[in-house]
Design a protein around this nucleic acid. Sequence first.
DNA 1: TTGAAAGCGCTAACAT
DNA 2: ATGTTAGCGCTTTCAA
Lengths: 338, 338
Amino acid sequence: MTIKDIAAYCDVSVSTVSRVLNDHPDVSPQVRELVNEAIRKLHYVPNNSARSLVSSRSTAIGVVSRGVDNPFLSSLIRVLSREIHDRGYTMVLHQIPTQADEVQAAAMLEREKKLLGVIFLGGRFNYTEDELRQLTVPFVCCTYTNTFGDLREDAYSSVSIRDEAEAGRAVRHLVDHGHRRIAVVLDDPADNSIGQLRFQGYRQALEACGIAYDPALAVITGDYDMGAVYAGVCALIDSGAEFTALLAISDALAIAAIKALTDRGLSVPGDCSVIAIDGLEISRYTVPTLTTLCQPAEDMARESVEMLVSLIEGTGSHRHMLVQTTLRPGGSVARRAE
Amino acid sequence: MTIKDIAAYCDVSVSTVSRVLNDHPDVSPQVRELVNEAIRKLHYVPNNSARSLVSSRSTAIGVVSRGVDNPFLSSLIRVLSREIHDRGYTMVLHQIPTQADEVQAAAMLEREKKLLGVIFLGGRFNYTEDELRQLTVPFVCCTYTNTFGDLREDAYSSVSIRDEAEAGRAVRHLVDHGHRRIAVVLDDPADNSIGQLRFQGYRQALEACGIAYDPALAVITGDYDMGAVYAGVCALIDSGAEFTALLAISDALAIAAIKALTDRGLSVPGDCSVIAIDGLEISRYTVPTLTTLCQPAEDMARESVEMLVSLIEGTGSHRHMLVQTTLRPGGSVARRAE
DNA sequence: TTGAAAGCGCTAACAT
DNA sequence: ATGTTAGCGCTTTCAA
């Protein structure tokens, strides 16, 4: 079943069928209807390979996700796959380790799969114009924006939360509950990535609250890994450091931290309150329920696709969208015992 | 940069280049080397669309995953995407709700994307030959096998654990710890899917241990949903039912169950032991650590791709692989208090 | 408003 | 062992 069959069936030329297929204007309503009906009746599906070949463009949108162990990204991917498919495109998913270079991965993918555009998840914030020249298609950074790089605002799009501000909000939530000695758990304070920003937000908020930053209270694992966080928090406790609250830069890390606290005989929130940022579904079921700032994953993913598609189709220009988190109060934060 | 450029550059014909590209035998070693070098030097990447068009086959392998909320499937997808890519194919991922029909989804996808084959995750077990006629490409069922259907063994491949036996093993683990009143948590006992098999295994093992099945101890939610499980287990407790242990058919559901038990003031494992099947990373960090039978996700995914590719390339035939789980002892199972 | 025809880059049958 | 060539299904000028 090809375009020829439809043409023959309708007694028109293939060009006419092609025009109908591509919504070109110069077709009379009657013929258009005729062709559309034939397409339906004969269950015709256009051959994407032929389309790609002649127009030298595929229907592929790349999703390059950095950080395979981050369940928050999994939930984004779920929505992305649906949205991309619903708009008639094909998602090409590439998951890479945190150590890998997502721009290079995207550039290779772009060539291999003739990508129309790329959505980055969990990437770095320090892209340079120079580096990005490898990429010749539009891209959207989802979950982050290019805080540390020199990209022009109109050279890319992004959907993200205000990571610094939100981390600050988390800190203030703890301070409001009487906490002053607040530990922080993160993978890397200088990764030019989410961790760095949230760490900065933590420090700034402390300062704003008149609390000195104490490096002894920072659990830095170097790796986005629950095991490392568990070990790190155990070591923190064993070091004798005093703290009554803890901010983890993500739910997954918070869960590992809670485990460490509990295993060391500290009660959450009795001895230590815990707050995080992400809002995983599973965080509703930790013991105690994790208090966390929920990122609107569904909206973020949907908006990213929306942006990229409008860029691809030439109906929109680069934008930067900031979304709000929602505090989901759990049982992991309590007023400090006097 | 096309095959023509390479041909011109090497002063050979396009067919020769094509032969080199496709590893055809009839090329002299010298010419082969010459062409390969040109390909490298000129950074030539074959145009997949053209390839697909002429050979009317793409490089696409479909992955149809049923049950978007199941984190175990996410971990499989991660490995699948890597393996598929490494073998030079493209993964087309389609995630559908548990209520949807994966065969129909796969059939549509096959036509749309010219799939070479399909890997099903978390599907039903009751496919009929008739139903599968929609699918004209080979497929592999990953995580399950066609227990309830009438498929011929040589008509499809599968990679799975012995769900009934493993559920039985979990039950016996509890019985070995002195438990006789064992509750079970599942979504649907008649879904022709993993839940049904594990439930059967639960009942059979009880029987084998001389314990009567008590329907009052079965928490059936009708839906793979942590919220529903939480509510169900709360209702079970509130009903006054007596039990000292609980088997959840998956880690995620176990986590919700533990939460419910804890929130109702029952201690795990003091008042109730909990065991599950899956082996999520996050289950290491629940409080208490979940005792669970780990499925070898990495192996299962890798083997599925291996099977499908050998089917696609005609170097293998349909096989059914059974893999072993590994008991990962946590702190959620204890000897029954006398 | 419609049709005819020239390729897009590649594979494979056929010829040499 | 290598080259020539006819399409694969489609989009897109160009002509009518």
